[in-house]
Each structure stands twice: as structure tokens, then as C-alpha cells.
Nucleic acid binder design. Structure first.
Lengths: 345, 345
DNA sequence: TTGTAAGCGTTATCAT
DNA sequence: ATGATAACGCTTACAA
């Protein structure tokens, strides 16, 4: 690997000139255009790549951002990563993916790694409760800006972007109501997942508005700490066993909805003809399901983009003003995506 | 952020001692255990994190590996990343996720970034043809070890891990055959995807062995450059329109199978009662599908783990021997995963 | 325009 | 067990 001095020797220019040109330094404004072009050409041709370690050491800028996810194989996270990546792409910042694998131990190990690498910010997917607020404190305390994605935070230092769960749940139930459904069953999310409560509130509010009675016999509470296909299957099986009549189901999220549809199908009930089903999230598989799932989309990609943008703003403020920046709190509007799993009652 | 000298002042030990202890240097063997413990305690307490840039500059070890994927939001990639992450976790290497987004421009930009960051290796998910062999050459030429995952390579410098597509396809068709299916339809993958040909060869070989005639009227070739849900849907619609009888379908992969099942369902045919369907890959959604999909699993996580392990071996060899290392070529045995989408003819 | 030299934080070598 | 010092490659102020 070429050093700037070797490159200087080989090209006949001085290290100073090379550095000025390659960094577009203001001090280099009197260097002739010809020289600049020549230097860039030669750098390309000889394969000179300035050593980032030396650069960072000198400038104390790492241009690295940690992007932290509870589980990389979760499509919800993947979509967010996509958005974060796109937003960061045009910036000088390199995302460092940190996959916590829902493990405290991993998190702790990575904290050290990140400080050693002088990370300039943390963008954390925080939908899972595994990632406690206190865990992110350590970054905020060290003046590393933190943006949480997917959980409604209110924290002295931490910014956040999340979907408006209440409105989303409202959209879903309104859709069913408008299609004539009156006996609607609900599969509530696990208590440990913050979104559950917000979504339930949206449902209650809509029900009150249109004076739709919520029959507690049609409500099932999922157990466990995470939503899942199996959970949805179980919940629906339970509902069917009770023998209650209903023409539609609102599942906590898409995976739950998949499980529910599967249970309905096995029981010989056709979706949507005999029972409509709505999900939440709009994971990629929702569009491919059999039948394609009507759901509330929260554009994870958008969440990611917004999160990254907040980070970029924050870091820019911090570096120009030098002041601690107020955290930003954003809520994204959800969108109803109508597909084949719902029909008129 | 504390420097080693500040930490030395604050702790009363010398920078030398601190460095020796924190790095477990052999030269530090005569330092008392008590001192060692004390220094580690204080480092923790005062939050001393050695600056990696300085360290890397000095040692010319970045401990960074590029993990390159064509598209982070593809679950196939996500599963591989999971495996890579797990294997790398216990090593000193930090994965740097590079999401190419199927774009040449992005690839080129990242190449520069990676050289600047003195990446020590590249682990690339290469199932998509977007990632050409020649593109990876630039790393290999600069003595950066490259491991390709998901494509059978034979290259002078590049190692690779991939599933044995031929055997996999053989497993799938054998499963159908053993369940009494004789009129089997095939949805062949796009010509641009390398796997397609290998899988087809497995099918032909099995058919020859058991003297099963392959009726060309039951074979559809997918168009386009990638497999997809829509492609499967189209292909199946085409098959049905021809009016040919068949009791089972082998789809190119899981997404294709989902599309095919959807088309069958819409045509009023029950899966698996009236038509069995087999996929390939075993993406996460396969287990959740309606009905759950019988498929050939290729454990992407395993592929990732193996890929990362090959990298770790290679880099270790390279650093101890200093010699160029022979590339490793590994094929992973696929596994038949029987679920609900297939039954006896 | 270019050369010189200091300094970023760490580690390694020597001498103490 | 420690202190002094050089070196890793780059940027930048200053001098030429």
C-alpha cells in the first residue's frame, strides 16, 4: 500500500500539494487546475488510497456510525437497514453494523469496540425491549448522539423515530368497519412489546367513536416476549375453540396474521370469504402470502431514512455549534395497504 | 476521550506498563498480578478505550472485514449475514457491512472506501450475477483474501462456499417421485442465475436414473434476471392455461413456489390435495406460508459461518506464513425440509 | 507552489 | 516495573 510520501516521489509532487488537492482543502485554491487533474489521475492510476487511520488520528473524525439491530435476520430490521444505508450513502459516514443478537453480553462487548473505534453516533433499532433505554445512555453520556428507531422514546438526549401505532391500528379497524364487519376479533400483542398498548388504544378509540362494542370474548392476549407465527396460530386456535362467531380478525402484526390465517385455513375456513384478516407492519412476505395480506404499512425503509437523517443533522449541529443538541422526536404516519385477505362481511 | 498518557497520570502507572498489561504483551510477564488487575479495573472505571486508529496505524492491522451483499433487504442475504456475524464474533475482526444495492456505482465507491480503511478481507454474497467475478479481482490482486458465498467459483485466488444445487434438486424430485408423482411440472429459474442450470442437471439425472420421462410441455422457463413471486405466478398461470395435467410442481426457489401456490389457489386448486409444490432455499417465510412449504433447505446461516471461517483461516495462514494461500472451495449438502405443501399423488 | 516539521495516540525497544 | 524515544501516515501552519 502506497503512502503519501511514496506517491509524492513517484508523481513528482510534494506530499503537501497532494494532500491539499485530494482533500479539496481551501488552502489549495492557488494550485493550478492542471496540477489538480494530474494528481487525481495519478492517484487513480497508481492506486493511492490515503490511510484512514492516519487521517482519523490526525483529524479525530472516524466518519463511522454504529447501526445497531437486535437481530439482523429479522426482516423488519433489514428494511430499516436499507433506509439507513441509503440515507448514509451520500454522506461521508460509514455504517458499522452491530448485530446484538438479542444478547446483553454481545451488547456490552460491542460498546467497548465502538468506543475504541471512536464511533460518531448510534442509530439503534429499538423495537425489541431487549434494547433497554439505559443501555443507550452510555453513548449519550459520552456525547455520542443516539437515534432510536421504532420505539417512542422521550428522553433527555435520545432522538427517536417511530410509527404512529395508535393511528395505524385505527386505520385497520376502520377498514374492517367500513366493509361491514361488526363482530371483530383481536389478537393483542405481547405485553412486553411497547407497541401493543399503543395499537390497542387506537382500536378502543375508534370503537368508542362509532359506538362499536368490543366483546372481550373476542380478544386474545398473546403470551411470550415476542410476536410470532406460532403465537398467531395458537391465538386463533383458541378463538375458534371458544366457538364465538366473528367475521374478521385484527392481528397484532403480520407474522401473527400469517399464523392466524394458517389456523383458519386448517379449520376449513376461507380467508377472506368467511373471515377477513388484517396485519400490521407490511413485511415483504405480506405481499406474497396466500392470500396476500391486507395490513398497515409502516415503511421501515422510511423510518431508517429519517433516523439516519436525524443523525446527520445532529452531528452537523454538534460539530459546527459545539453545543449539545436537543433530541428530535418524530412520528411517521402509517398507511393502509389493502390486499386480498379482507373483503366485505 | 482519555489518552493513554492521561490515563497513566490519573492511575499513577506509566504508559508502558498500561500498554503491556492491556495487550497481554509477552514483555509484560514480569508485571505483578496485582498491578495487572488494578490497571484493568481502573481502565474500566475511568472509561479508558485505546484509540483503534492509533493502534491500527502502528500495527497496520485494521481487524476489519468487508461483508458485501447485493441487497440487505433480501432475506437470503440476511440469513447469511447472521452466520457470518456469529462466526466473526469470537474473532477480533469487525464486519463492515457493505450493501451494494445491486449497483455498479455503489460497488466502485465502496472499493475505494474499503482500501482506505485497509480492510483485511472480503466476504461477498455472490448469488446475484450483479456481482461479477472480475469485480472481486481487484481485492484478490491486492492480496486481500476474498471468499464468495452462494456461487460455485473456480478462480485462481478466490475461495467459495455454495450449496450443492444438483444434489438439492435431486432430493426434491426424489421426494415427489417417492410419493407417487409421475406427471411433474417444472418452473426453471432465469437463465441469468447460475444456480438454475445446476438444479436442472440434478433433475435430469434423477429422471434418467428412474426412467421418468420429462415432458417438455410441463416445463416453463422463467424470464428476467431474478427469481420472483410474480415470476412464479406467471409461470404457473401459463402452465394452467396449457391445460396439461400434472400432480406436482417443482419451483425454482421458494419465492417462485409462493407465486405458483397463489396462482393454483386462485384457479381453485388445493395445495397439496390437488397439486403438490416444492421450493428451494427454505427462506424464513417458507415455514409460515399457507400451506407451509416443502422445500430444499440450504442453511444460509451455515454458508455464512463457513465463509467467515474460511476467511479466518486464510488470514491466519497469510499472516503467519506470509505466503499466498490456496483458495478453498466448499460445497454444502442441502437438506429436504418436508412441510405441508406436498402429499401423496 | 513546495518543503519542513510538529503532532494525533499507540506500541516497541532500550536503558534504567 | 518504568521512563524516554522513535515510528506508523497524514494534515497543516509556516517558511521559502
Amino acid at each position: 500500500m502506497l503512502t503519501i510520501r511514496e506517491f509524492a516521489k513517484a508523481s513528482g509532487f510534494s506530499p503537501t500539494t497532494i494532500s491539499l488537492v485530494l482533500n479539496n482543502s481551501p488552502a489549495g485554491k492557488y494550485i493550478s487546475e492542471k496540477t489538480k487533474v494530474r494528481i487525481r489521475e495519478l492517484a487513480e492510476k497508481l492506486g493511492y488510497h490515503p490511510n484512514q487511520f492516519a487521517r482519523s488520528l490526525r483529524s479525530s473524525h472516524s466518519h463511522a456510525v454504529a447501526v445497531m439491530v437486535p437481530d439482523i435476520s429479522d426482516p423488519y430490521c433489514a428494511q430499516i437497514l436499507l433506509g439507513v444505508g441509503k440515507a448514509l450513502y451520500r454522506s461521508p459516514h460509514l455504517p458499522v453494523l452491530i448485530d446484538i443478537q438479542n444478547s446483553r453480553a454481545r451488547f456490552r462487548k460491542y460498546v467497548a469496540t465502538l468506543f475504541e473505534r471512536r464511533i460518531e453516533g448510534v442509530i439503534a433499532v429499538a423495537n425489541s425491549l431487549q434494547l433497554q433505554t439505559e443501555m443507550l445512555d452510555i453513548f449519550a453520556k459520552n456525547r455520542v448522539p443516539v437515534v432510536a428507531i421504532g420505539r417512542e422514546f422521550s428522553h433527555e438526549w435520545i432522538s427517536s423515530v417511530s410509527v404512529d401505532n395508535k393511528t395505524g391500528a385505527g386505520l385497520a379497524i376502520a377498514h374492517l368497519y367500513e366493509h361491514g364487519h361488526r363482530r371483530i376479533a383481536f389478537i393483542r400483542g405481547p405485553k412486553e412489546v411497547v407497541d401493543s398498548a399503543h395499537r390497542w388504544r387506537g382500536i378502543c378509540e375508534f370503537a368508542r367513536e362509532v359506538s362499536l362494542p368490543l366483546d372481550s370474548k373476542l380478544v386474545v392476549q398473546m403470551e411470550g416476549t415476542a410476536s410470532s407465527y406460532e403465537g398467531g396460530f395458537e391465538a386463533m386456535t383458541q378463538l375458534l375453540r371458544k366457538g364465538q362467531r366473528f367475521t374478521a380478525v385484527m392481528a397484532f402484526d403480520d407474522l401473527t396474521a400469517f399464523g392466524a390465517i394458517r389456523a383458519l385455513t386448517e379449520a376449513g375456513l376461507k380467508v377472506p370469504e368467511q373471515c377477513s384478516v388484517v396485519g400490521f407492519d407490511d413485511v415483504a412476505a405480506a405481499a406474497y402470502y396466500n392470500p396476500p395480506l391486507t395490513t398497515v404499512g409502516q415503511s421501515m425503509e422510511e423510518l431508517g431514512k429519517i433516523g439516519a437523517t436525524i443523525f446527520l443533522h445532529t452531528i452537523q449541529m454538534q460539530q459546527s455549534n459545539g453545543t449539545q443538541v436537543e433530541p428530535v422526536l418524530r412520528k411517521v404516519k402509517p398507511v393502509l395497504v389493502v390486499r386480498g385477505s379482507t373483503s366485505a362481511a
